[in-house]
């Protein structure tokens, strides 16, 4: 199953077949999610209208962690089975995940001001998400730091695996430390302590964000594979041309 998609052409065939459906589902989910979030859900009895920030903040926080887990798994697959498309997927997912993390931090800050009276506090949950954002930046920077692209993707894959220790820290930070950030209310064992009228838009948005993530990753992977093909064709042509030129010693050498 895994090795079937090591071939970029086969991967692209599947990706092209899935992409229109996935895009349609994403639009549908986010559109109904927005309708429920703004019109069909009640304001909170304590927080008033600002509770609607939650419908962007919480899904993007989940996606920030999901995207990093996706990168770590893809990196592991790439390193262990030397799977070329997995590395490309990991690199494609990194800026998307970094964006979700930034959205999470910004909306959290906008929500914190009316609720906690401050834009930012250095509590465990906020700080660990900020470190996650830095890890995304380091991953992207390291992947692009080498002249040899395959070296960069392997080095950044090792970094992604090392950095994945942050995920449990983020998840349990609200339980381990006594923080200003509220503890988990949806993923609680048993009944979630959130009303169905708010859970509906939250889940719609979370599903919509997940499919959006995959749509973006597929598009970015596709364009990266296309860019690599263009590069390979171009360098093959240059080699062909200089190969002919090198037969005459007067013009050779300098051409490449």
């Amino acid at each position: 199953m895994l090795h079937r998609f090591a071939n970029p052409t086969r991967f692209l065939r599947l990706a092209n077949a899935v992409l229109p459906w996935l895009t349609g589902i994403t639009v549908l989910l986010i559109a109904t999610g927005i309708y429920f979030a703004f019109a069909a859900s009640p304001p909170d009895y304590q927080q008033g209208q600002t509770v609607r920030i939650m419908y962007v903040h919480v899904p993007s926080a989940w996606m920030a962690m999901f995207a990093y887990a996706f990168i770590a798994v893809a990196s592991a697959v790439g390193l262990i089975w030397k799977h070329p498309v997995a590395h490309v997927c990991a690199l494609a997912a990194a800026p998307v995940g970094a964006c979700f993390t930034l959205i999470c931090l910004t909306t959290g800050s906008l929500w914190g001001k009316p609720m906690w009276g401050t834009w930012w506090v250095w509590d465990a949950r906020l700080t660990s998400v900020l470190i996650l954002f830095f890890l995304y930046l380091a991953f992207i920077a390291l992947a692009n730091a080498f002249d040899d692209a395959s070296r960069g993707e392997k080095a950044s894959a090792v970094l992604a695996l090392v950095g994945s220790v942050i995920l449990p820290v983020i998840k349990f930070s609200v339980d381990w430390w006594n923080t200003l950030h509220q503890p988990a209310s949806v993923t609680k064992v048993g009944m979630p302590s959130i009303d169905a009228s708010m859970l509906t838009p939250l889940m719609l948005m979370a599903l919509g964000f997940t499919t959006l993530f995959f749509v973006l990753v597929i598009i970015r992977t596709r364009s990266e594979l296309a860019a690599r093909r263009v590069n390979a064709l171009r360098s093959a042509r240059i080699h062909a041309e200089t190969g002919e030129l090198e037969t005459s010693p007067a013009t050779g050498g300098k051409q490449s």
């Binding site: 700080t127 470190i131 830095f134 890890l135 930046l137 380091a138 920077a141 390291l142 730091a145 080498f146 002249d147 070296r151 960069g152 080095a155 090792v158 970094l159 090392v162 950095g163």
Partner: peptide
């Protein structure tokens, strides 16, 4: 050491190294 080994032979390795190591040593 892990960061230095990862950035070996990269461009601007000094800046990159701090970007890599600082989040991990928090």
């Amino acid at each position: 050491a892990l960061g230095a080994a990862l950035t070996l032979g990269s461009r601007r390795s000094g800046v990159l190294l701090s970007l890599l190591v600082i989040p991990l040593v928090v």
